[in-house]
């Protein structure tokens, strides 16, 4: 399953409808364009609180992608500051519920819990990784940014970003194939 030098590059546009999701395989390089939503720890907690209180969410989840990021402040004249992925496992507690409500993809870094992977398979969702630490490089693919909720959370507010050819890799596909496990197995000399 794990591919290496000959990885294919796939141009993908949001919303990530199921027909697009099922064609992706762990290891695929993706250049993602369209609108995506930012949310990290505090925003996830609020989203889930709103769900349990029966309130409507600040954006419709169906076929959408959440990017786990808390960007640095934008310099004058710039769209956004450096904006690399934060570690995804901290959102694991909240993610299955969001997937079951229509969320179709996440962008972050690091492996996910078995519960998240099960919910991804159940909903044919995809988890992408972006390169942790490549924050300024990734920000270059963000062409628009607007805060749409939880402004008081500062860097943790929910933003809608418009991205153009954001470089990602499919880390876990809709079938549960996991590049973190397969890649490490391939190079382990233990």
């Amino acid at each position: 399953m794990t591919k290496d030098a000959k990885d294919r590059v796939i141009y993908l546009t949001t919303p990530l409808t199921v027909d697009k999701r099922v064609r992706l395989q762990a290891g695929d390089r993706v250049l993602l364009s369209g609108k995506i939503y930012t949310a990290r720890d505090a925003a996830h907690k609020r989203l889930l609180d709103q769900i349990s209180n029966g309130q409507s969410l600040p954006f419709a989840l169906q076929d959408q992608v959440i990017y786990y990021v808390g960007p640095a402040p934008a310099r004058p004249g710039r769209v956004i500051g450096p904006a690399g992925p934060t570690t995804s496992y901290r959102m694991d507690r909240y993610t299955p519920e969001l997937l079951d409500r229509g969320l179709s993809g996440m962008i972050g870094k690091g492996d996910r819990s078995p519960e998240v992977v099960a919910a991804m398979k159940r909903n044919q969702a995809v988890y992408f990784c972006a390169t942790g630490g490549a924050a300024a490089l990734l920000a270059q693919s963000i062409v628009r940014s607007e805060i749409i909720a939880y402004e008081d959370l500062g860097p943790e507010a929910i933003r809608v970003l418009t991205v153009r050819e954001m470089p990602l890799i499919v880390a876990i596909d809709a079938y549960g194939n996991n590049l973190y496990e397969e890649g490490i197995r391939q190079f382990s000399q233990e």
Binding site: D4, G70, P82, A135, L137, Q140
Partner: peptide
Amino acid sequence: SQRGKTILRQLLDNDRICRKTGDCVCQD
């Protein structure tokens, strides 16, 4: 790993961008 090389190259490119723009290397 070719994939590993690509990631290292991205991180080196990121540093180059930051030296030019004055951006912080990581949002954290």
